[in-house]
Simulated scan of single mutants.
Amino acid sequence: MNQISDKLNSYYKEMKAELVTLEDLDPTIDEELENARQEWREARRYFERVEDPYLIDYAIYSLEAAEAKYNYLIKKARRLKSHQ
């Protein structure tokens, strides 16, 4: 689980750096990005705390879903930025 956590930490830092460059975007996308980032962080915390074997799969799927949503919004924000 440490490898997964390390990978997530590294990936999260890269994505957080992207937020700095997106400050001039439409406030709606900025708010969506912040909400998605928060969901991702909460899913990650849950994944790190879960102990019940029946909930580990749920924690993994939740984490992957939150990450996918965040990545989608990052790509959307980049497209918006490139069209400005």
Rank of each mutant, 00 (worst) to 15 (best):
L80G: 04
A36Q: 04
Y70I: 05
D6H: 14
R45D: 04
Y12I: 08
S82I: 12
S82F: 06
T21A: 08
I56Q: 09
T28P: 01
D30P: 01
A43V: 01
E42T: 02
K81F: 02
R45G: 02
I29Y: 00
L55R: 15
R49E: 14
E39T: 04
M15C: 12
D24E: 10
T28C: 01
K69S: 14
D30Q: 11
D57F: 05
K16S: 07
N9V: 11
Y54C: 05
S62I: 05
T28R: 03
R78T: 07
E32C: 06
R79V: 12
K13I: 09
R45W: 03
S62E: 15
E18M: 14
D52E: 10
S62Y: 11
A68S: 11
D6K: 15
Y11K: 09
R41A: 00
L33K: 00
N71R: 15
R44Q: 10
K7R: 14
A66Q: 00
E34R: 04
Y72H: 09
A59T: 05
S5A: 14
A65D: 15
E67P: 03
D52W: 06
A68P: 02
E32K: 15
N35G: 11
Q3D: 10
L8D: 07
P27S: 09
P53A: 09
A36G: 03
N71V: 11
R78V: 07
I29S: 00
I60H: 11
E31F: 13
P53Y: 06
L25Q: 03
Y61D: 09
P53I: 09
E23I: 13
L63K: 11
E51Y: 08
E42W: 01
